[in-house]
């Protein structure tokens, strides 16, 4: 039984964005049309979701000040601060 989706607000580099409760951080970003949120250390190439289940660590992002969190694993919550290179 699906209830009507609850809305939450997350901050993408301090810009408030509406999202549906229960989504992963990766899903919130992809829903905003953002496919990459960090660049690689050596070649500066964009990266976002890849394995989607926590194995590859490609989707690392800073959440509430904590760096290197997996966007595919973390559930977005109201007022969460998500910081990344969204122009990656």
């Amino acid at each position: 039984m699906s209830n009507p989706p609850q809305r939450i607000t997350v901050n993408l580099n301090a810009t408030p964005v509406q999202a549906e409760a229960g989504q992963s951080v990766g899903a919130v970003l992809m829903g905003q049309g953002i496919k990459a949120w960090r660049t690689t250390r050596n070649e500066g190439k964009p990266r976002g979701l890849f394995c989607g289940i926590g194995a590859c660590y490609d989707c690392l992002i800073t959440i509430d000040g904590e760096p290197n969190q997996r966007a595919c694993m973390v559930q977005a919550s109201d007022s969460m601060n998500i910081e990344g290179d969204f122009s990656a």
Binding site: G22, A27, K35, R47, G52
Partner: peptide, 20 residues
């Protein structure tokens, strides 16, 4: 390595977990 390339199972996990 391009964004938008995912594991097949990752796409499925995305749909199952997020409904989108």
């Amino acid at each position: 390595e391009l964004p938008g390339v995912m594991a097949a199972g990752g796409i499925q996990a995305f749909i199952k977990a997020n409904g989108t």
